[in-house]
Write a protein that binds this DNA or RNA. Structure first.
Lengths: 114, 114
DNA sequence: CCGATACTTGAACGTTTCTTCAACTGTTCA
DNA sequence: TGAACAGTTGAAGAAACGTTCAAGTATCGG
């Protein structure tokens, strides 16, 4: 009776302390968000097969170059892909080893769905 | 010159054929979308530590019970968590082994970021 | 039965997201 | 130089998203 505190609140604080920091959680969410859009997921899958020019990606996905370019910018900002200028064209490639592993794991999950 | 086709288009079709089916890509994106919101990411992290009642989750995240409940519904629909009624309360737990592994992998990535 | 507790649900609202369109930059080559 | 090509960028509109608020259901204690 001496503590008079709310048991619930204390234990909530304890649990909260066990979670990754707010910053890490936000970064984590940002990372997964990249895979959470079908267009970006497709782009990343393409780049797993081989490096590609923007126009090639647009052809594969049957989308406008502009739409693809916008998504590439997002992926670039997230450091998941990088673009290298080759004359008139820009060749994109994966910029992160984790991409393959994370996608792989997600695919395993999706495919195992009963 | 006999084929007269566009090389680019053919190779694009070839690449397209190597990607997972449209359905799988969409499911994949749906899965990752679940991790792509900080609130849901936190809920999943909490539930990795232990099973929790809705009110407890709300206390940990310092959010309204309503907001938490809405997100739990989304996670339930994605089959990532399940809720079990215990009298007045509902205890939530992870409903999928992959959750832990996927989060773990994402965290590794985020923490390794130089 | 009545009130309190625990949670769910639906509607509303402000934000964010994604695509499209048009304009722009940079490179090649005739 | 200038036309064609490859890609980027900004603005705009539609759709999806997440939180809040208010109302609803279900369970327990008195």
């Amino acid at each position: 009776m001496a503590d008079g505190g709310k048991i619930n609140t204390d234990s909530a604080a304890a649990l909260r302390g066990m979670l990754p920091s707010e910053d890490v959680i936000y970064d984590l969410a940002e990372l997964f968000k990249m895979f959470g859009d079908p267009t970006r997921a497709k782009i990343l899958q393409c780049l797993q097969i081989r490096d590609l020019y923007v126009g090639e990606i647009a052809d594969v996905l049957e989308m406008s170059i502009s739409a693809v370019s916008h998504q590439l910018r997002v992926l670039r900002a997230a450091k998941l892909v990088k673009g290298t200028k080759e004359g008139k064209e820009v060749k994109y490639s994966l910029d992160d080893d984790h991409v393959t592993k994370i996608l792989e794991y997600g695919l395993t999950h999706v495919n195992e769905e009963k």
